[in-house]
Design a protein around this nucleic acid. Sequence first.
DNA 1: CCCGGCATCAACCGATCGGCTATCCATCCG
DNA 2: CGGATGGATAGCCGATCGGTTGATGCCGGG
Lengths: 208, 208
Amino acid sequence: MIRIVLVDDHPVVRAGLRALIEGQEDLVVVGEADGLEQALSVVAAEPPDVVLMDLSLGTDSAGGAEVTAALRALESPPEVLVLTTYDTESDILRALEAGARGYLLKDAPPEQLFGGIRATARGETVLAPSVAATLVRRTTPGASTVTDREVEVLELLSRGLGNKEMARELFVSEATVKSHLSHIYTKLGVDTRAGAVAVAIERRIIRA
Amino acid sequence: MIRIVLVDDHPVVRAGLRALIEGQEDLVVVGEADGLEQALSVVAAEPPDVVLMDLSLGTDSAGGAEVTAALRALESPPEVLVLTTYDTESDILRALEAGARGYLLKDAPPEQLFGGIRATARGETVLAPSVAATLVRRTTPGASTVTDREVEVLELLSRGLGNKEMARELFVSEATVKSHLSHIYTKLGVDTRAGAVAVAIERRIIRA
DNA sequence: CCCGGCATCAACCGATCGGCTATCCATCCG
DNA sequence: CGGATGGATAGCCGATCGGTTGATGCCGGG
């Protein structure tokens, strides 16, 4: 019997996942949480084998990546399987760096979800195809790779910030931001900020 | 027995909603769809009383608003209850203009969902509290109201477009765009484009 | 050890943005 | 019938922004 805890801020999704999972003989949901605190207390009270983690947990709570990191920092940490809507480079990297064992998308068919949970419980790594593709493309040498810092700039850019504001946000000078932007332009093959945002979204470097 | 069709591009959410709903004596799911075509054929094959509609249906398909409009254009149209994640002014307005009867958020408790479905089947209007608040604020006289056109500009702005690009996108002259922007600045109490985007997101006029 | 990638920064210059004033037209409403 | 509102447009001008180029320091790999 694989013990599962759900972490998602949507009651509908939680209840839905619970209903789906409990239709499986070998899976049982032992708890639900909608944020960091609940997740910690539930996991402590009913130690699960696998935690199903949503990444976007509403604005008030910590993000799923932080919650994942917090859970993985426990003495005997549960395996974490991320189940979310977005498959952008930054989301994936953050989650995996936080210690997630797998990364599935919410538009996956239920069978894939069940299989993923079982594989995660066995300690295997589970990645949705598009997620795997993103990671491969990232480590492919030839492809022009956007650096972490540049991704940060792209995210701010997509929020419509000006150079000065980005500089303030990143604690660097405006000149540095401009430099990052120039590099981004060459790497993405564009020459304007709007174009950069478009391509970055297109290539799933950031999310819309 | 209230007959329901689910329209959502996430299998997990669809299956989850189905499981939840079928736990209710008086509700039955008679079909699921993940986009416009499926929705039309399913509704034709198994005429429902209520359609539960997600607004963001993946990039390839039409949006939930268009699907809603298409369904409401049928001879004997089903009632449409929007069930989505976002409660921005533009989303709400688009959905209601398309003929949706109600608007609930996915973070609503299941009970509210069931009640909403029953009310919708009776032809009543169902709005989540925050949605109602947004609508009220919009029709409140004193508050500086951003016009529809200005919202369009704000959305383009949040995508990082320049004035010239917005002008092209909206089929107007650059002067017009600037004029809209000036009005937006005064109404939102800011003096930069990035600031306008920030306040617009903050006030839920557009979504991040 | 030296090269390359990454992050940082400075100075320069042209494009643009922002703010202003003013006009025109359609629609809606009392 | 006015009057108000929303939308579209023009022209102006100075401040600022955005983009390029070039240069520095740091770190890790070959």
